[in-house]
Amino acid sequence: MKYLGLLVIWAFSINIHAAEKEIESLYRSNNINGSILIESADGKIKFQYNVDDEESFVPASTFKIPNTLIILEEGLIKDSSEVIAWDGVEREYAPWNKDQTLKTAFQYSCVWCYQRYAKKVGNIKYQEYLRDFNYGNQLTGSEITRFWLDGDLRVSVKDQISFLRKLYVESLPIEKQHIKTLKSIMLSESNSQIKVWSKTGWSGKDGWYVGYLVVNEQTWFFANHIEINQSSDLVLRKKLTMDTFKVLKIVQQ
């Protein structure tokens, strides 16, 4: 029985290695430099490509996940439908040029919306939350409205999944109702086969797609970081993630 157990472990490790080689081919065929980490809910199964424990990046709009919780917990907005009045400033991205709600601000990655609330939260509070969340390197910087875009805050793919796990089980030091509100606006796909809670991010060369999905009653966490060299690369944040799930046969082709 001992040898049978070792044989099963060996075969499983071979399968993981083969799958990770296929993932590598996905990134190479798309001329993308990036890294991805996928973990089962129980943490027993992990798939990764090009993950460097020492490498971290600005979280960009993926910071809207913890930032939404902070804004709600601070009582700066009461729920996902409260109106955030447009300031009348025309911006390049048309969906931002109108009133928003927390739900649309999250889904459209409305930078000005979150910057408005960042000024109200302030640096001291942000540092407390980052420490309580154990989020990334827990640094902000000199500009409170941009620290997640081009300031000092850095996260790794492992940091992203670590935070998502705490969000999923609702173990963060945040009122449960606020966590449920965030989850409701994070739900990006839902049908009879799959449900996905996710957020994209982009700042400079840093592109992200992070979240978790449920398929066949199994939950999987994911964090994909890619280097953005041209605007056409942006679609690959999500596409490479979902193609990886298909390679792993977690999601159907």
Rank of each mutant, 00 (worst) to 15 (best):
F57P: 07
V58Y: 14
P59E: 08
A60I: 08
S61T: 07
S61W: 02
T62H: 08
F63A: 12
F63E: 12
K64F: 11
K64R: 03
I65M: 05
N67W: 08
N67C: 04
L69I: 02
L72A: 07
E73R: 06
L76A: 01
L76K: 03
L76P: 01
I77A: 00
K78V: 12
K78N: 15
S81G: 10
S81Y: 01
E82F: 00
E82T: 12
A85H: 13
W86C: 00
W86Q: 00
D87N: 15
D87M: 08
D87Y: 01
V89S: 11
R91D: 06
Y93E: 05
Y93K: 06
A94L: 14
N97R: 11
K98F: 00
K98M: 14
K98I: 04
D99L: 03
Q100T: 01
T101L: 04
F106L: 09
F106W: 05
Y108M: 03
S109G: 10
C110K: 00
C110I: 01
V111I: 15
Y114D: 08
A118W: 08
K119R: 14
I124P: 00
K125G: 01
K125I: 03
Q127K: 15
E128V: 13
Y129A: 00
L130E: 13
R131C: 05
F133Y: 14
N134W: 02
Y135S: 09
Y135D: 07
G136L: 12
G136E: 12
L139P: 04
L139C: 10
G141A: 11
G141N: 05
S142A: 13
S142M: 14
T145A: 09
R146K: 14
R146D: 15
F147V: 07
W148F: 05
D150A: 10
D150S: 15
D152A: 13
L153W: 10
S156G: 12
S156T: 03
V157Y: 07
V157S: 13
D159V: 05
D159Q: 06
I161A: 04
S162L: 06
F163V: 02
L164W: 01
R165E: 15
R165H: 14
K166W: 10
L167H: 13
S171K: 05
S171G: 12
L172I: 08
L172T: 02
L172N: 06
Q177F: 01
Q177Y: 09
H178Q: 07
T181D: 06
L182G: 11
K183G: 04
M186F: 13
M186P: 03
L187I: 03
E189Q: 14
E189V: 09
